[in-house]
Design a protein around this nucleic acid. Structure first.
Lengths: 198, 198
DNA sequence: TTGCATACATACAGCCTGTATGTTAATTCA
DNA sequence: TGAATTAACATACAGGCTGTATGTATGCAA
């Protein structure tokens, strides 16, 4: 009664099982507190399989973070698809981002351990490959082409930092509506110092 | 030929030696890559001494981070002491902060591993106990009492996040003048949407 | 000076990571 | 089709690190 599986399928399934198990544990206990023996036990495999598919524990962590980033990006896109104006899209995106970041463990994974363990550059790359473009485009559009590319990038980076900090503060028990409103106001002030936003 | 030292002095000196050695290694190689054997070797002590003075490796790390925060706060205060207006003080403070963060390893220590290893709440507490008040006061003053306390806190937090991200980006090779200018403009827009800043 | 507490040093147990080696199943190729 | 090769794992091992338990000497207090 042996299951007959192609190597390709086998490989794919094993990788997924490892990433899934690791994701659950990294979200629950964090990177350092999660041992590879625990991961493979949960996946019903052995450490041999893990180190066959991933160079080291960090590579597994990277795979988990990339998958999570894609998931978060999808949630944000779903939440900001039908906005009328660029500013509205930014606001909807911000709301969706905060909602997505409420998932347990995500903040530690994506905002704390990710940068510390993988490097900010890696996180930035992942962000740009997944959801970060949206923000950059939104800001560029909202600024109406009145800014250089470099400036848009810098602004998007700084705004993204504010989003992250707001999410962090909210998880830490801060006044969520206050932070979200403050972010909204900053966005409005930043993007269009013209209309009567105040 | 025995040195005759009081227990109080002995204790103080040992603690300092441990923190100094740990600081050097944490700055150079990071928290996870630094082992306690290496720390005590550098300090000319043994692990027994370390675990006598600190509950665990994290407690030593906390001591290092607190000391470093105090040092950074001092550098910032020295660099922004003689500003004329609140906005000028904020700008000088920002400049001094960026300068302070250029010290090798500081960004990893204070912005990456600190939050990840100790928790953002702890880092926030340390920040408020050392340099963070300055920023809050500066923003409150610049806003001219037109905002609630909670709002000032949130704003200060978000602005501080921008500072951090800018420092991070600059260390990562980003265009430093561009980032610093963008931060300055954001500060100006935030504080006084009145003057002809553009 | 006698007894206790403090400041360390030494020794040990447990865990974890990464690698080396072994085994089985799939794929390739003659 | 069947032998050889390689991929996909499992098992076993070495080294290092953390935290604790235990031992020792020195300061301190009565």
């Amino acid at each position: 009664m042996q299951e007959r599986r192609s190597n390709q399928n086998r490989r794919q399934e094993t990788r997924r099982a490892l990433i899934k198990a690791a994701r659950a544990l990294f979200l629950e206990k964090g990177y350092a507190a999660t041992g590879t023996p625990e991961v493979v036990a949960r996946a019903g495999l052995t450490r041999g399989a893990l180190y066959h598919h991933f160079k080291d524990k960090q590579a597994l962590f990277l795979a988990v973070v990339e998958a999570e980033a894609a998931q978060i990006a999808a949630e944000i896109e779903a939440g900001s698809a039908d906005a009328q104006t660029p500013l509205a899209a930014l606001n909807d995106g911000a709301r969706a981002y905060f909602a997505a970041m409420r998932a347990p463990g995500r903040i530690r994974l994506m905002l704390l351990e990710g940068p510390a363990t993988l490097s900010p550059e890696t996180m930035r790359r992942i962000d740009l490959e997944t959801g970060g473009r949206e923000l950059r485009l939104g800001i560029a559009e909202a600024l109406g082409g009145a800014a250089t590319v470099g400036r848009v990038d810098a602004l998007a980076d700084l705004v993204s930092a504010m989003f992250d900090r707001a999410a962090l503060a909210i998880e830490g028990g801060a006044d969520a509506p206050l932070y979200e409103a403050t972010v909204r106001d900053l966005l409005a002030a930043l993007v269009g110092p013209a209309p009567g936003t105040r």
